[in-house]
Amino acid sequence: MLLLPGWQNSGDGHWQTLWEAYFGDIRVQQHDWLAPKRGDWMVQLEEAVRAQPGPVLLAAHSLGCHLVAAWAAHSQQVGRVAGALLVAPPDVQQDDWPLVLPSWRQPLLQPLPFAAQVLSSTDDPFDRAGRAAHHAQAWGARHLSLGTRGHLNAESGLGLWPQGRAWLRSLLEPDV
Rank of each mutant, 00 (worst) to 15 (best):
P89C: 06
K37W: 04
D124E: 01
L152C: 03
P162H: 07
R165K: 04
P174N: 12
P102L: 01
Q106P: 06
C65W: 05
H14E: 07
W41T: 04
R149G: 00
Q93P: 05
L146Q: 01
G159H: 04
S75K: 13
L45P: 07
V28D: 07
G11W: 01
V78T: 15
W7A: 05
F114T: 07
P5F: 04
G147N: 04
P98C: 03
R27F: 14
V56L: 06
W71R: 10
P98S: 02
P162L: 11
G79K: 15
G79Y: 15
Q8M: 12
P90H: 03
L86M: 15
S62W: 03
V100Y: 02
G39V: 03
P111E: 10
R27D: 13
W167I: 04
D175Q: 12
P111H: 11
A51N: 09
A59R: 15
A70M: 15
H143G: 11
L109V: 11
R105Y: 03
P98H: 02
V68T: 15
R128D: 00
L85T: 06
T17E: 09
W139M: 13
L158H: 00
A73L: 11
P107M: 01
V100D: 02
A138Y: 10
Q30T: 10
A70T: 14
H61S: 03
G157F: 00
V28F: 07
G54P: 03
A82S: 15
Q163P: 05
R165T: 04
D25I: 10
H134L: 00
V87M: 06
W41P: 04
L144F: 09
D91Q: 05
A154E: 04
L144S: 01
M42H: 04
G147I: 06
G64D: 02
L2N: 05
A69V: 12
Q29R: 13
V100T: 10
L2M: 06
V100H: 09
R149S: 00
L168K: 01
A141N: 08
A51I: 08
H61W: 07
S145D: 09
W19I: 08
N9E: 11
A82Y: 15
L112Q: 11
S103K: 04
A21I: 05
L144Q: 03
R142L: 12
F114E: 06
L86Y: 12
G24F: 06
V118R: 05
L58M: 11
R169L: 00
L112W: 09
H66E: 11
S121T: 00
Q110R: 14
E20K: 15
P55M: 06
D12H: 06
H74L: 14
E20D: 10
P107F: 07
E46Q: 13
Q8R: 14
H143T: 09
P107V: 05
V100F: 01
L171C: 08
Q16F: 07
